[in-house]
């Protein structure tokens, strides 16, 4: 199931969507994920016991790593960045995901102490390990060092939500979960918001509503009279 975008919704709905999204991204362990150490990099590094607490300063800005240590190894980080940019490459409108710090966000996510992050973070780290192992098996190179064509062929095998080879199901679930994380990270940046066409968050003297030509094009002219 897809995660709908964050439209103007009730907070409770947002929470529900978040829960649904993470439930939908549940990874099912298959033998193809075998060989991955049960300890994630994050847990091995020793997570802090708590997060930012119930009364954090809401006004200051935070960067990944400010509140809990980031835990990607250098190799994981390289691989995560490569996969970020396969998900969201640069185009004429905007740069790639890794260029605006999405790799840092993924690291922050998998390193966070909250139960959902511990659970999903392990799946992300396990998925990255699987991807490297599979790339090495197929191409003799870890994912980040594989050619663009090799990377694409591997991704195309795990892009189907229900892959023909059931052994790839866990990898496919990881791929979608990772895709959603990259999209979350990218479209919350100023660059991503501009790309998607979000033009709010600026003070206005008046709220004008939609322009008349758009209202007319959608056949809604009668609706602006109350």
């Amino acid at each position: 199931m897809n995660t709908p975008e964050p439209i103007r919704i009730d907070r409770r709905v947002a929470i529900k969507w978040m829960l649904t999204a993470s439930a939908g991204a549940m990874l099912i362990r298959t033998p193809s994920f075998g060989g991955v150490a049960p300890e994630t990099a994050a847990s091995a590094a020793g997570r802090p016991a708590t997060g930012y607490g119930t009364d954090p300063d809401l006004v200051k800005g935070y960067k990944p790593g400010d509140l809990w240590p980031l835990t990607f190894t250098a190799a994981q980080r390289r691989e995560a960045a490569a996969l970020c940019d396969i998900m969201i490459p640069a185009d004429d409108h905007s740069p790639s995901a890794s260029a605006v710090g999405v790799t840092d966000f993924i690291d922050e996510f998998v390193s966070a102490p909250y139960p959902d992050n511990v659970r999903d973070g392990k799946k992300i780290v396990d998925g990255l390990a699987w991807l490297d192992a599979e790339s090495t098996r197929r191409f003799g190179a870890v994912f980040a060092d594989a050619s663009a064509g090799q990377q694409a062929s591997l991704c195309d095998d795990i892009a189907p939500e229900e892959p023909a080879n059931p052994d790839l199901k866990a990898a496919a679930d990881f791929f979608k979960r990772y895709r959603n994380l990259v999209a979350s990270g990218f479209y919350t940046t100023p660059v991503g918001m501009k790309d998607i066409g979000y033009v709010g968050n600026v003070p206005l003297a008046r709220f004008e509503g939609p322009p008349a030509d758009l209202v007319e094009r959608l056949g809604l002219t009668d609706e602006v009279k109350w």
Binding site: N2, T3, P4, E5, P6, I7, R8, I9, D10, V13, A14, W17, M18, A21, I86, M87, I88, P89, D91, H93, S94, C155, A159, P160, E161, E162, A172, F175, K176, R179, N180, L181, A183, S184, Y187, T188, G192, M193, D195, I196, G197, Y198, V199, G200, N201
Partner: peptide, 29 residues
């Protein structure tokens, strides 16, 4: 009633699968 182009939050934008595949790359954008 909730509609509109609100500030993108930390949940992925609406990205339907295409032909049963997780979209990514140029198509995602």
């Amino acid at each position: 009633i909730g509609t509109g182009r609100g500030m993108p939050g930390g949940y992925a934008p609406y990205l339907p699968s295409s032909g049963g595949r997780t979209t990514y790359g140029a198509r995602l954008k």
